[in-house]
Amino acid sequence: MSFYLVQILNALSFSMLLMLTGLGLSVVLSLLNFVNLTHGSSFLLGAYVSIWWLGSGAPWWLAFPVAFLASALAGLVLERFPFRQFYTRTHLMQVLLTYGLSVIFADLMRWGFGAQIASPELPEILSGVIFVFDMPFPIYRLFIIVFGAVLALALWFVIDRTIWGAVVRACVTDRRFVETLGLDTKRIFTIVVAVAAGLGGLSGALGAGVLSAYPGLDEEQLILALIVVVVGGLGTFRGTVLSALLLGFTMTFTKVWIPEMSNVAALAIMALMLVIAPQGLVARKVRQV
């Protein structure tokens, strides 16, 4: 009983990490129709920055905003050049451009942060365990679950329920029309890309406590995030959340029941989803020509 309760918590915390990583990718895809494969780099940058911050002795809770800012800043620069030139290009060209950039960033980070594996020193308050009956569960993972849920809700609220969100969504539907209202759409796009990259950094900072950081983590996370976002339905908010939960739970429970086949089983289930729903779990309406 307590065994399965803790396994559900395990699955939830892992899903939250997947969701957080996927959200940044999903935001840019849904709002700008832009595929940003440097998202894994944002994740790793955030992870390294937070590890460095936590090791420096400064107040620990600032590590997360700092990681957010660092990655957001990188995103800001990238948006100006070269992303902006590629908004109107095909997905394929966007994939190629950003994949190439992610290769460059991977090597730059390897250069700057070294090839050694790095792990954060978590603050006392986050490094304990709670007991579910007799089974231990780390407080840090609870923190991830709560943090992830709050962040997802906040994001949904901003995009779906505020005037800012409405403006951004309007930009996607008809950019010229928004411009006639006197709004600077270029700036709006810049902000969206920067925030999304920041989200990547933030999830990296959170994830580092579980995953550590090392060259190659960027690619691993990118692939997971891509699977989550695409199976969810290319950047629909609900789709990303649903798909992250699905992947998180299957990866956790296949490890419990059939550890040797867990990867195959998880992959097969995600493939099955795409076979059943070729447009993703929650499909957007797309006009075809």
């Binding site: 994939v95 699977i227 695409v230 199976v231 990867n263 195959v264 992959l267 493939a271 795409l274 070729p278």
Partner: peptide, 23 residues
């Protein structure tokens, strides 16, 4: 498996199917 998908869905589904073969 990938017949009905296009674009990014095709990309990811071929990735997943490929990884299953790899596994």
């Amino acid at each position: 498996v990938v017949m009905r998908t296009i674009a990014l869905f095709f990309l990811i589904l071929t990735l997943i199917v490929g990884q299953i073969f790899w596994e």
